[in-house]
């Protein structure tokens, strides 16, 4: 992967937040405060990917990315929340994960994306790996003020 600079990859082409009324958007927020939460988050994310009609490989990608991000927030960020959205745009459906924590934040974002980077209990692949599993990925962090990661994967399957 090209070591593009921190923050965004493949920024959304259109403002998919402006969802016309004939599109519904479902959203749910889950706590990330214990190891048990990680498990129930995986279940919730799996259900959302199924709902969005994802194939089995994309399901696995998104659930794995959620697991990585949630664990990051739990281990490094001292807990937080994961918000799950079903999003729609022209012709396709996506699942968006927003993981927020109130932890110490990340000082060197570029470094945090490097495989093998770790600040705590040894989860080197968390961020960079999760970014590769998703279509869109943004991270914002202020040292001392926590971290917000937003990651979306679009359904490329569109089974009839």
């Amino acid at each position: 992967m090209t070591g593009s600079h921190a923050g965004t990859t493949r920024a959304p082409q259109r403002a998919d937040k402006v969802v016309p009324a004939h599109h519904s958007t479902e959203s749910s927020t889950h706590p990330v405060a214990s190891e048990e939460d990680l498990l129930s988050i995986r279940h919730a994310v799996r259900a959302a990917t199924l709902h969005a009609g994802f194939g089995i490989v994309d399901q696995t990608r998104v659930v794995t990315a959620a697991s990585e991000l949630a664990r990051n927030a739990y281990v490094h960020g001292g807990g937080g929340t994961l918000t799950l959205d079903i999003v729609r745009r022209l012709g396709t459906t996506g699942v968006r994960l927003t993981v927020e924590d109130d932890g110490p934040g990340i000082e060197d974002i570029e470094e945090a994306f490097t495989d093998g980077f770790t600040t705590g209990a040894g989860l080197g692949h968390g961020l960079g790996g999760a970014r590769r599993l998703m279509d869109e990925f943004t991270l914002s962090s202020t040292a001392g003020r926590g971290t917000v990661v937003t990651a979306t994967r679009w359904n490329n399957r569109r089974a009839p």
Partner: peptide, 13 residues
């Protein structure tokens, strides 16, 4: 399983 293998390599593992 295939999806697990694909996800792992994309994860960089």
């Amino acid at each position: 399983r295939p999806p697990v293998a694909i996800t792992l390599v994309e994860l960089g593992i």
